[in-house]
């Protein structure tokens, strides 16, 4: 392979990319920090009164109720804080995808708006399949 034919100079990093780089950094780090603190808080709450915890799906699904969840936050129920931390952790990368879509779109980069848009569609599809009640 001869160098002259195939050498491509590297693309300059666009403004949109620089913006994403810095925003991604903040989003990822913040999400991790806050969720770790929430998990740790939930753990401390749980260990104040050690008890037996069933490993069944029903025990987990008990928390899937908005009113019960928010009441749990007020009454300092450990699982409510752990659930909040889990949700936050899961949503951090999703938020990152949304920021990227916005940044590429505002820069007029249609190719990458489409690429990141497809990634977001896969996430939406996952939620829809989950709602369908697999298993």
């Amino acid at each position: 392979m001869r160098q002259k034919e195939t050498y491509n100079p590297p693309a300059p990093v666009s403004k949109a990319e620089q913006k994403i780089y810095s925003e991604v950094y903040d989003v990822l780090l913040l999400g991790m920090l806050v969720s770790t603190v929430l998990f740790a808080f939930g753990l401390v709450l749980a260990l104040i009164h050690p008890h037996f915890i069933p490993l069944t799906r029903d025990y987990v699904l008990k928390d899937y109720n908005a009113a019960y969840f928010f009441r749990g936050l007020i009454t300092l129920r450990p699982s409510a804080y752990m659930m909040l931390a889990t949700l936050l952790l899961i949503l951090t990368p999703v938020l990152r995808v949304l920021i990227s879509i916005y940044a590429f779109f505002s820069e007029g980069d249609h190719k990458y708006t489409l690429v990141t848009g497809i990634v977001f569609l896969v996430i939406v599809l996952t939620v829809l399949l989950g709602r369908l009640g697999l298993k």
């Binding site: 799906r57 659930m83 952790l89 899961i90 996952t126 939620v127 989950g130």
Partner: peptide
């Protein structure tokens, strides 16, 4: 995150284990 969303909705993420 994609796998976690599905597991979460299926009730497989046990918060006391995850923490």
């Amino acid at each position: 995150a994609v796998g976690s969303i599905l597991f979460f909705m299926a009730g497989l993420i046990h918060f006391y284990v995850v923490a």
